[in-house]
Every structure is written in structure tokens, then in C-alpha cells.
Design a protein around this nucleic acid. Structure first.
Lengths: 343, 343
DNA sequence: CTTCGCGTTTAGATCGATCTAAAAGCTTTT
DNA sequence: AAAAGCTTTTAGATCGATCTAAACGCGAAG
């Protein structure tokens, strides 16, 4: 560390300029790596910056240049590992573009979502990636674009006119149904929970379509508690009203984990006399016993896609809205088996 | 939405002032809720703000006022649900203080940590909460405080002279060892993985101390792979070199989940003829079968504590460093049992 | 009538960068 | 030698708020 003036206030571009015997303007060109400035001068300025321990003041720059190098990210729930992975994918891409992520949690509540969106505007983010809270109106998103704030919706699609990154949930459901059908299952339940939003509806519709196109009854949709600890004890709901499913597809891996436990408690052997398919394929799937067969939606990839969509839109705000929907992959492990002959 | 000038550039405080027939200065006092301004005037200004759809420009304010209402958070790994919960606790407290979180991922690499810390400084954060990457030198943290940047270390303690929020890992280990000992276990392994840092050392030392103070051999420390999928297949390492532990304490719940599967694969019945204790007590613990007994470190609480420490320091930068160490709780479920008589 | 005090309002400088348009150097033409 | 054409550098205005110190209006005190 070379000698610095600690007691004095922060060192500014003007200080650097003086030390290097150039003007403020020239120094500014150097930091921004403009090709205009001469090689020798550039070296002198960079040397001065190092000597003085200069740090760029983004805030001042943003005021003039109208770019904050900042991206807002709004998610409905941070504690869910799925969103954590999503966030990780977003952060990686945004970071490598030299920008930073401003994070906010909407708690899946539209009022809080309004709040944090206002805050993001005040902080002057260059754009926003939002997983819209359940119940979000298209008007909310249109409002944002009318503010000229670049926007990407992720995971949940509210408006056709706004960029979207997600996964092909319906196709994923079809993969799950097809796989179970190929094993001989004909009575298949669908276990759901959580708030109702587009991703929810896509999965439900995907399930129903896939079942119907095979002539199977799509009406065994069972709603389970949201709390992970309560799911296991609700496993009996699968068999209420005299239904006898031989397999269940889960809305996500959290449910699959809970039901796996609940079915075990009831003496059923998952993968032998009962089949279970998860959705999302989070890291735990591999560590469960039996290993969970799950439809992989690759949250990190979705996050990265969303971030790239936003970066593209930043460079061209007028480009028409795009959808980036990545393919799901059925990851077959051990939690499904052929239908038991006896049943 | 009242009539706005969409095509024109953003509406500024001066516009508001003009509309309300006051000066820029008065309008400024109104937004900042100063008691100086008259009731009637305040109402008129607020009305004008509403009519024009004014949004506060934090960037401009920060430049003058030297406060950005922004807090940097640096974590080593976002995909780990433990850090996601930690982040959630931080975000909630920071948000309710009217500030926002700027997020960065160090990937547990000191070079990247340097990078992102620089970026945070450039963005003018008011303070930083950092879970230091493995191998972080105390000098790194001291450097930050010399920059007059309020700082809190979370989960991992590098320097005594900097605020710290964490959990009493050593006490947690003692709880685990005591519990197993009370069930009659005498040969207890400790399964670890991951990078070496203060939290790692605290747990190892806590384990060794607790074992020794009961006259038990503390040398059965077994290192497992970092990848969750590989942990199960490494369960045999517990029994290498002819050792015959009857119980294992895990460094975290990720290992516990993996080992639970691996032990199952080897035909051992966890909770009956083998005992398993996790550490952290993440949400999955409840959903495992058998339900995982785990030492709860309450990541959300730690995060909230860290955020509060930072807010306190923001208001009083000279206050001496504090440590907020929250108590662990042994959450007893089903994965431990009395030592098998036959053994 | 002037002075003082008090609550309210304001003009003008300021924060630290960027941007524009023009100037200063330098070489090459005419 | 002057003009033209480069490349490189610069002065000064500017972004939108905050801060300081002074002014203003008005009733009470001297």
C-alpha cells in the first residue's frame, strides 16, 4: 500500500488528474478505457491512480451517464433452494457483465412487490428480473416497461409482451406421464401445493393434457400442505375417496421428499410397489433413498438465461419480446418401477 | 395514474418545486420528512409529487449526502440452502431498515472476494456483511475497516477486532456428543468435508474437546467428498482401518443426508443399529426418514443478527467490536438410538 | 418605530463523475 | 508558409439531489 491520505476525504478523479498533470477530462477517459488517450499519458494516469489508491465513484458516474451498472432481482422466496439456485445463475452472468445484483424478496405478495419495485426505481437500476408474485396483474409489468425500465420475467409468465425465461413445464409433465405409462401405470395422481401462478397452471395443464392424450383420468389432483414438515403426514390424501393410484407425480421435489417419507411411513416401498416422480431435480434428489426420479428444470440455467435476456435488452431496448424456454430432462433414478402385477 | 409526461426525461425535484410554487430546497425538505416545513406547504408539495409521478433519485442524493442506503453482502456459495436462509435473514432486516442488499458470490475464492469487494466500494455501499472465503487473511478485513467501511463478519470469524455474528458451534458439538454418550455410544466418528475455515475448526475442536472431556477417543475424523452425490458411496470410509463406530456426527446436514443414504445402502438401520446426528437443522431434516436429529444453528437468525450488527455500526462507527453468538439447539428426532447390546 | 426571536423558505455552492464542443499539437499537403 | 487533417487534451456545463448560511414574514418586546 503506497502512502495515502487517510484522514482526508476520498480521493477524486481531480486529485488523480492533478497528480498526473492532466485534466479531469483526460483522467476520465483513461478509466473508461477510451482509445482516444495517448499511451504515455494513459500510463501516467494509471500510475497516479495506483499511487493515490483511487476508487471509482459509480454513484457520481451514474448521475451523469444515466447508467448504474445495477440490476434488480425480485424473487418470491429466498429460503426455497430452487430460488437460491436461480439467483446463483443470475448473479454469475450479471457479475461477469461487470454489473451487480440488487436483491429483494417479495414474499409472493403483490403489495410488497410494489414496494420493492418502487425501491428499485429509486435506486436507479438499469433493469429488473422478476419472478412475479402470485396474483400479479399484467398491468404491473406493462407499467414497468412504460417507465422505460428493461424487464425480464422469470419462471412465471404474466405477459406475452415481456421477455421471459423459464422451462417447458408442460413438456416435463408429458415426459413424466409417458414414463409412468410405459411402466404400465394407469392411475396416476398429481400432488400439488403452494400459490397459484402461471408455472402452477402450466404444470397442471401439462399433466391433464398428457393424461388425456393417453386416455387416462386426469382428475386425481391432490392438494397438500405448504409446510414441508406437514407433507409426509398428508400422504393419506392420495388414497382418499377410495382412489388407488399406483404412482404419483409431484409438483416439485419438496413435495416428493415429503411424500417419499409419508409413503414410507405407510409401509409402501417407493420404487417397488409405488412409483414417485419429482419435479425440478434439485441436488437432494441424488441423496434420497431410493434415489428420486425427477424432471430436471435446471434453475441455474434458467437464471443465466434470464440474465442474458436482460443484458440483450439493455443494449437494444426496442427489440421485440422473446421467450427462452429450456427443455426439461427426465432424470431416471430409482423411485419408479413397473406396476405391481397384484394391483 | 394521473397524467404524466412520458416522452420527456424524468421528473426532477425542481419540477415538483415549480409545480408547488416553492423552491427546490423546500421540496427537498419535504421528501426527507423534515419538521421544518409548514403543514400547508408540505401538503402542496406532496400533492405535486403525486401529480407528476415523481420518483426519488437515490443516486443524486447519495452523491451529496454520502449515504447510499445500500449494503453489500458477500457469500461463498449461493446454491447451498444454508446460505440462502442466511441471506433471507439479512435481507429481511436490511429491507425493513429501508435499505437494499447488493449481493455477490465469492465462490469461496479470495481473489474473487477481492474483486467483488472492490466492486462494492465502487458502488459506494454504506457497509458490508461478509462470510469470508476460506483462507481470508485478517489483513483483508482490517483493510476494509481502514477504508472506513463498516463491516460485519458472519459465520466465519477471521478477526477479533471486527463485529461477528455466528453460532456457538463448539457448544453444539458438545450437545451432540453428550447426547450420543448418554445413549451409551463410545466410538463416535465425525464426518467432515468442504473448505477449511474458522467455522470448520470450531466444530472440529468442539468435537475433540467434548470427546476428550468424556475420556473418549476424538481421532475418528473422516473426510468425505464435497459433492453431495458422492457422499453416500463414501460411507465405507467410516469403517476403514478396522474402526467400528456406532454413531457419527456430521459436519452439516448435507453430509447427514448423504450418509443416511449410504448407511442404508450398506444395510445399516439408522436410528436402530447406527446413530446419526446432523448439523444446521435445515428444513429437509424433518422430511428425512428416519427424521434427522440435528443441531440447529438457525441460519435465518444469524443473518438477522449480522444485519442488526451492521445497522448499529452504521449509526455508531466507533463502537467497539461485538460478537453475537447464538445458542445452538439439539433437535432430537429419530436418527439416534441406544447403542446396540450385541455390538 | 426599531429590534429581536422564531418558524419557514430560499439562493447558491457542492458532491464527483461525464459530455460536448472546441483548442492545442503534430504531421502532411498545397 | 499556410491550410488541412489527424490525434490528443481540455474547459466548462451538467446530472439531481443536499447543505449552508442567509433572508423572509410576523408577532412580541424594548
Amino acid at each position: 500500500m503506497p502512502f495515502e491520505d487517510k484522514k482526508k476525504s476520498r480521493v477524486t478523479l481531480l486529485d488523480v488528474a492533478r497528480r498526473a498533470n492532466v485534466s479531469r477530462a483526460t483522467a476520465s477517459l483513461v478509466i473508461r478505457k477510451s482509445p482516444l488517450v495517448g499511451t504515455e499519458t494513459r500510463a501516467r494516469v494509471e500510475e497516479a491512480m495506483r499511487e493515490l489508491g483511487y476508487v471509482y465513484n459509480m454513484g457520481a458516474a451514474r448521475l451523469r451517464a444515466e447508467r448504474s451498472h445495477t440490476v434488480g432481482v425480485i424473487v418470491p422466496n429466498l429460503t426455497n433452494p430452487f430460488f437460491a439456485e436461480l439467483l446463483s445463475g443470475i448473479e454469475a452472468v450479471i457479475d461477469s457483465a461487470g454489473m451487480v445484483v440488487i436483491l429483494a424478496n417479495s414474499g409472493d405478495l403483490v403489495e410488497r412487490q410494489d414496494m420493492v419495485m418502487r425501491r428499485m426505481r429509486e435506486h436507479g437500476v438499469d433493469g429488473v428480473i422478476v419472478c412475479p408474485a402470485a396474483g400479479t396483474e399484467p398491468a404491473f409489468l406493462h407499467q414497468i416497461t412504460e417507465w422505460d425500465l428493461p424487464l425480464v420475467q422469470v419462471l412465471r409468465q404474466i405477459s406475452e409482451e415481456v421477455d421471459y425465461a423459464g422451462s417447458d413445464y408442460a413438456a416435463g409433465m408429458r415426459q413424466a406421464v409417458d414414463y409412468l405409462a410405459s411402466l404400465g401405470h394407469r392411475t396416476i395422481a398429481f400432488a400439488v401445493h403452494g400459490p397459484i401462478h402461471s408455472a402452477y397452471r402450466e404444470r397442471v395443464e401439462g399433466f391433464c393434457d398428457a393424461m388425456q392424450s393417453r386416455g387416462l383420468d386426469p382428475n386425481m389432483i391432490v392438494r397438500l400442505p405448504n409446510q414441508i414438515g406437514e407433507i409426509a403426514d398428508a400422504a393419506h390424501l392420495l388414497f382418499s375417496e377410495g382412489k388407488q393410484p399406483t404412482a404419483v407425480i409431484c409438483f416439485n421435489d419438496v413435495i416428493a421428499l415429503g411424500l417419499s417419507a409419508g409413503l414410507y411411513d405407510r409401509g409402501l416401498k417407493v420404487g417397488e410397489n409405488f412409483s414417485l416422480i419429482g419435479f425440478d431435480d434439485v441436488t437432494d434428489a441424488e441423496a434420497m433413498r431410493p434415489r428420486l426420479t425427477s424432471v430436471s428444470t435446471a434453475p441455474v440455467t434458467i437464471g443465466a438465461n434470464a440474465a442474458r435476456l436482460l443484458l440483450d435488452r439493455l443494449t437494444d431496448p426496442l427489440r421485440p419480446a422473446r421467450r427462452v424456454v429450456n427443455e426439461t430432462i427426465l432424470h431416471i433414478r430409482q423411485s419408479c418401477g413397473p406396476i405391481a402385477i397384484s394391483a
